[in-house]
């Protein structure tokens, strides 16, 4: 019954509460953009297969770490608000879902900005962007899904272990 009510209800206030931009989020977007630009040029440049693989894995780990940092920081900075909302009857996994959505949105913004900037830089530098675009498409799914899964696991972990009385006591 609650599930139906939850689906029917509007969550604008919760989104307003948790989507407030923070300086940390801005830095994450910039870092993800930079990493995407680096990835673009790693694909474009003719470097060894082995070195390229290492660089791609490094970029994947770095973007995942930024997504993870975003969710962990959201939980840490919003501990009190989350505890209050759970206490008044808002399901904790709904809050976790909103924080995950926020992370996905910021990661996607960083990723998209990085792609646009890299494409423009490549165009200006005379790099064959069409070939790079084809290769990027191969990695895109992994580089978007990977950080999302990492952030999702982090959200589930944090919401499951959230101790409301302890937070409210502080």
């Amino acid at each position: 019954m609650l599930g139906v009510k939850l689906r029917m209800a509007s969550y604008t206030l919760l989104l307003k509460l948790f989507s407030k931009p923070e300086y940390r989020s801005f830095l994450s977007v910039v870092m993800i953009s930079v990493l995407t630009i680096i990835m673009w040029f790693v694909i474009a440049k003719e470097i060894g297969h082995y070195v390229r693989s290492i660089m791609m894995v490094t970029i994947f780990v770095a973007i995942s770490a930024l997504a993870l940092n975003e969710t962990v920081a959201s939980f840490t900075n919003r501990r009190r608000d989350i505890a209050i909302l759970i206490a008044v009857g808002i399901w904790k996994h709904l809050i976790g879902g909103i924080l995950l959505l926020k992370t996905i949105v910021y990661t996607s913004i960083g990723w998209t900005l990085g792609m646009i900037i890299a494409y423009l830089l490549g165009w200006l530098g005379g790099i064959s962007n069409n070939i790079v675009l084809q290769q990027i498409a191969l990695f895109a799914t992994v580089l978007v899904l990977g950080p999302t899964i990492v952030a999702g696991i982090s959200c589930i972990f944090h919401t499951s272990r959230f101790n409301v009385p302890e937070v409210l006591r502080q």
Binding site: L2, K5, A9, L13, L14, K16, L85, V88, G89, I90
Partner: peptide, 12 residues
């Protein structure tokens, strides 16, 4: 007002 309304969204 939003503080009062935030819990109402679960009432349907």
């Amino acid at each position: 007002k939003e503080n009062i309304k935030v819990t109402q969204m679960i009432t349907g």
